[in-house]
Computed example of a mutant assay.
Amino acid sequence: MKVLNIVGARPNFMKIAPIHRAFMKYRDISSKIVHTGQHYDTRMSGIFFSQLEMPEPDYFLGIGAGSHAQQTAGIMLEFEKVIYKEKPDLVLVAGDVNSTLACALVAVKEHIPVAHVEAGLRSGDRRMPEEINRIMTDSVSDHLFVTENAALVNLKKENVDESKIHFSGNVMIDSLLYYFPEIRKLNIPESIGVAPNAYVLMTMHRPANVDGTEGLKQILEIVKELALHKNVVFPVHPRTMQHMEIAGLKKEFENIAGLKMLQPQGYLEFLNLTLHAALVLTDSGGIQEETTFLQIPCMTLRETTERPVTVESGTNYLLSRPDRKDVVKLAEAIFAGNAKKGIIPALWDGKAAERIVSVLREKYINSYVCGN
């Protein structure tokens, strides 16, 4: 059985690493990695390969930056060449980035089965490119591996054949647990001059929050208010920094007393910062899951979330169009010890990759051997 595992952007690496590791336990599986280059610099890509102990990709497509259409089309053109050369038995994609959809489309048009890891998630907001990627990838995939019950409900509503759907758990948590001893050894807060459990960790990169001047001004005011209570640690995504500069707000952010703006952090470093934060403020998807698992309060500045279990059962608060006073009021309650107590969702146990590989082996190896 030959599998091509697709990575392209930062969120993919943590999902593919444990699956590739699980595949490699079997001599009858050839597991290869295709890196599309959607995220291509060291901070956003290279450090993840080294920290997650992933081998050099078998193929690097080198797509780089561009519009959604440019990226998707470029990946499709280059990945098609890999498909023709490798003739895989399966293409495995994860998440909801442009690389996910592009490679799924190429594979299905060449009649190659597609497995989608983290399937069925829906925000209900089709203005988000990621939502379109999720819906379309699920619609063409042969195997849908889901992380939470809401995804099962979504796929049922969309009349997906139940035989395609597998409740596997969350591979993001596989990576977190596998590297947790290394994460705990670090002391990133001390290295940047903040005390553990005495700072707010923040990430912002969604277009609604950072692409326009108004959104950035609102983030600026929120940071100013929070920094009056605790230090704010802000690893800045490259596109967020770019839009700060375009809007002429970079200096205003830099001049906030108590705000520490950092370069994007590696996987281990960021999770160490998460582990010791009093609160996480984000618009990321995966961080909502990691904070729920680590039992760290999280406030998500978005209209919707495709990961409702983190709000319903976890430690996440969804703040739609919040006034800065709402954010600060909730933050003060959390700082005072009144954060909600979350529980860890079902099958977030570090064994999701093993369950995924077991399903695929049964389908493509065991059933073939038995049938012949």
Rank of each mutant, 00 (worst) to 15 (best):
I344Q: 12
L268W: 07
Q263P: 09
A346W: 13
K250D: 10
I112F: 09
V93N: 09
A278N: 07
Q242P: 00
H111L: 10
K15H: 09
N338G: 15
P57Y: 03
M136F: 08
L319E: 12
F180K: 13
S320H: 11
V311Y: 07
M54H: 08
D349W: 03
P189N: 10
I287Y: 02
D161W: 00
M241L: 14
E225I: 00
S67Q: 11
Q265A: 09
P238L: 10
A102F: 12
P129L: 10
L105G: 02
R122I: 11
R127K: 14
I47P: 03
K217Y: 07
G46T: 10
D96F: 01
G95E: 08
H111A: 07
H39A: 10
M14Y: 02
E158D: 13
I173Q: 04
Y40L: 09
S50E: 15
A9N: 08
E53H: 11
A119G: 12
P322Y: 01
T291D: 06
Q265V: 03
V359I: 15
V236G: 00
Y368D: 09
Y364E: 11
V309D: 01
M241E: 15
I192M: 06
A102K: 12
Y26R: 08
H229T: 08
L92F: 09
L301E: 08
R122V: 06
E214Y: 03
V171T: 15
N170E: 09
A257R: 14
L301A: 03
E289D: 12
L77W: 04
V106H: 05
V210D: 01
I16T: 09
F13R: 07
R21D: 14
I365C: 04
M24T: 13
G120M: 05
D349N: 12
R43C: 02
E303C: 03
L220W: 05
E130W: 06
Q242V: 05
E254D: 15
L216D: 02
A94I: 00
G37S: 11
G248F: 13
M172H: 00
A353S: 15
E158T: 08
A151G: 11
F60N: 15
R355K: 06
N366G: 01
T100Q: 08
T274G: 05
T203P: 04
D138R: 02
I19C: 05
Y179C: 00
K325E: 15
I356F: 07
S320K: 14
T213D: 13
Y178P: 00
F180A: 11
G124V: 10
V106F: 04
